[in-house]
Design a protein around this nucleic acid. Sequence first.
DNA 1: GTCTATAGATCGATAGAC
DNA 2: GTCTATCGATCTATAGAC
Lengths: 206, 206
Amino acid sequence: MTKSDRQISERTKSEAKTTAILSGAMKEFLQNGYAGTSMDKVAKSARVSKATVYSHFGDKENLFNAVMQDLVKDKFQQVMSLEKPQSLEQDPQVVLSGMMTKMLANIQNNRSFQDFMRIIIGESGRFPELAKAYVNNVAKPTIEILTKYLKSHPALELADPEATVRVMMGTMVYFVMLQEMLHGKDIVPLEGDRVIKTLTDLITEG
Amino acid sequence: MTKSDRQISERTKSEAKTTAILSGAMKEFLQNGYAGTSMDKVAKSARVSKATVYSHFGDKENLFNAVMQDLVKDKFQQVMSLEKPQSLEQDPQVVLSGMMTKMLANIQNNRSFQDFMRIIIGESGRFPELAKAYVNNVAKPTIEILTKYLKSHPALELADPEATVRVMMGTMVYFVMLQEMLHGKDIVPLEGDRVIKTLTDLITEG
DNA sequence: GTCTATAGATCGATAGAC
DNA sequence: GTCTATCGATCTATAGAC
């Protein structure tokens, strides 16, 4: 083994640790929030020593931001993958209701996405820049894609597509938030399909 | 001063401490969340000793629940006060848009309400019973009042008033959440009036 | 780079004086 | 009932060996 081989091997090992730390920290932060997560827990979850965590990420706040920026980048990719399937479907009513059904299914049984939203909202007071990163890289692209779609269908005769998109997104987000995140499923039960049908009808029969 | 006078005086003092502790704890919990708030901070904020906090509320979790139940009760009263002003207005379009304008104004510049929502959502994973208390005592009554109103106006010809109410509430909540709580005001700017007009038109021109 | 061991501060909670 | 003082655990972060 040459000297440069050893360098590569060690760099690879170090990068593997970085990944393990990010992964362990992600699990802990999503589960317990920023203040509720200790660096000991992170180290244990990543199966490295606490000193290694510090040598890779400096301090707790920096690690938290790294984890969350990774997650934001992840959600950005997911949003962008919604761009292509502008299906050949012509009927906006079918397309809209199909889009929302898909969105709802993707979120409703996705615990880790709900944990992500919980952290973004819960820590938005103490980490405003994190919240802004979410708005810039997740909410804004989603709004733009939906607005672009609504605008490309003048047959809908929407007076204000931008505001209409907010109605759509708000309806979906609030539904998942109330039923799942806030555990309202059994207290104020409601079928997601009813909400989607109502919203679709409101928009297409305006 | 008789013995019973002294008892009254001391009971009054003790009750004043209870109030001070609840008030100080409320400030701290709303600002820093559950894990981010220490009992030392609470004691300092309430200007009592830490031992007094413990003698009144047992432990931290109990104090947190007491504070949040107080807040939930508060919001419940606010929701209920919306019941009466079923104005003499006949035009649902005017009533709806007026109601939502009022709701938005009440929330949009209300930092403490936003902090409250942040905690409810942020802690809903570790305090599911608190989230359920919110749904039972704030979200559900609001939904019921709005549903009752929509149902009392058959002229609106709504196919599904229950689901329509979710669209309304989701739109309002998401708007405030994105613009204010998540600091999106400058990133995805939008006039609240446009959202209200769009929503009102969708519902009344359906 | 990674570990063990530990410093120094702060945590939740309590004992004991008044 | 309320305080000061303190306990033991846990916290963030680092020093020093390998």
